[in-house]
Nucleic acid binder design. Structure first.
Length: 251
DNA sequence: ATGGTTGTTCCACAA
C-alpha cells in the first residue's frame, strides 16, 4: 500500500501538476494540505474517493483514496476556525491528515496557537495508542525536527519551525512510541528536504527543510517498507513549494 | 541585515 503526503499550496492552482503526478506515482492514498478552497469547491477527481475539509482562501486538507474513505473527524482543537485536521478510516487503518500551524511570527498569538494545536495532537495520539488503533499521522507539520533537517540551522534559530518548544512537541510525539518513518529508514541522511522556499533561489541552492512527515503507530511501523521523498514535482513549472513524501507499508 | 516569490483576493496577508 502506497501512501503520500503533499502540501499542494492551492489544489486549483496545482491541479495539472497534481494530476500528472498521480498518474506517474500511482499512490493508493494521498494526504493533501493547503488546498485553499471550500469543501464544496474541491475539484472533481475522477475515480478517486475524496474526503475534504476545506475553507475559503487559507489552509484546508483532503484525502484521496483508491478505496472508500470514511471521515471520522474534522476537529482536533475545539471550535478551531482553521481547517487543518482530517481523520479518516481507510480499510482497517486510521489515517490522519494534518496541516500544523506555521506559528510565525513567534511574538504574537500565532506561536501559542501552534503549541496548543500540537498539544491537542499529542493528546489525540495518546488516546489512539491506548485503544491500540492502527494509525498514521501524515502532513505538513511545520516542524524541523533536528539540525540535519535543514540546510543552515543558524538561519532557523528563533523561527517557529525550529524553536525548542516546537521541537519538544515533536519529540514528545515520537516518545509516545510513534515512528518518524523517513528518519527511521534513513538515520543520518542529510539534504533530505520536502520544502524549498519560492524566494531567493532556495530550490536551485538546495536550501530546503524537512517539515512534511509520516508518524506511524507501532502496528503500522511493523509494516513499514519504505519512505522516500519524490523531488521531481518541485522541479516542474508551476510547482508547489513542497514536494511529496511517499510511504510504502505492507498490505 | 535585507530581499527574494507565490496564491488568493481585492490589496494585504500568509507562507
Amino acid at each position: 500500500m502506497k501512501l503520500a503526503t503533499f502540501n499542494v499550496n492551492s489544489v486549483r492552482a496545482r491541479l495539472p501538476n497534481l494530476m500528472e503526478w498521480l498518474d506517474t506515482a500511482q499512490p493508493d492514498v494521498v494526504l493533501l494540505q493547503e488546498i485553499k478552497v471550500e469543501t464544496g469547491g474541491f475539484p472533481q477527481m475522477g475515480d478517486w474517493h475524496c474526503a475534504v475539509h476545506g475553507q475559503k482562501t487559507y489552509n484546508g486538507v483532503a484525502i484521496l483514496s483508491k478505496t472508500p474513505v470514511e471521515i471520522i473527524s474534522t476537529s482536533l482543537v475545539p471550535d478551531d476556525p482553521q481547517a487543518r485536521y482530517l481523520e479518516a478510516r481507510i480499510g482497517g487503518v486510521t489515517v490522519i491528515d494534518v496541516y500544523v500551524p506555521n506559528g510565525n511570527p513567534v511574538e504574537n498569538e500565532k506561536f501559542p496557537y501552534k503549541l496548543r494545536w500540537l498539544e491537542a495532537l499529542y493528546e489525540r495520539a495518546k488516546v489512539l495508542l491506548h485503544e491500540e488503533t492502527p494509525f498514521l499521522i501524515g502532513g505538513d507539520f511545520n516542524i524541523i525536527p533536528q539540525a540535519v533537517d535543514c540546510h543552515n540551522p543558524t538561519a532557523w534559530e528563533g523561527d517557529a519551525l525550529y524553536r525548542p518548544e516546537t521541537r519538544a512537541k515533536w519529540h514528545q510525539l515520537c516518545h509516545l512510541g510513534l515512528a518518524d518513518a523517513f528518519r527511521a529508514l534513513h538515520p543520518n541522511e542529510a539534504h533530505a528536504y520536502t520544502f524549498w522556499d519560492y524566494q531567493a533561489g532556495a530550490w536551485q541552492r538546495d536550501n530546503g527543510i524537512r517539515i512534511d512527515h509520516f508518524l506511524l503507530s507501532p502496528q503500522i511501523a511493523d509494516r513499514l517498507v519504505s519512505c522516500t521523498i519524490d523531488k521531481a514535482p518541485r522541479g516542474k513549472d508551476k510547482a508547489s513549494d513542497h514536494t511529496p513524501l511517499i510511504l510504502e507499508i505492507e498490505p
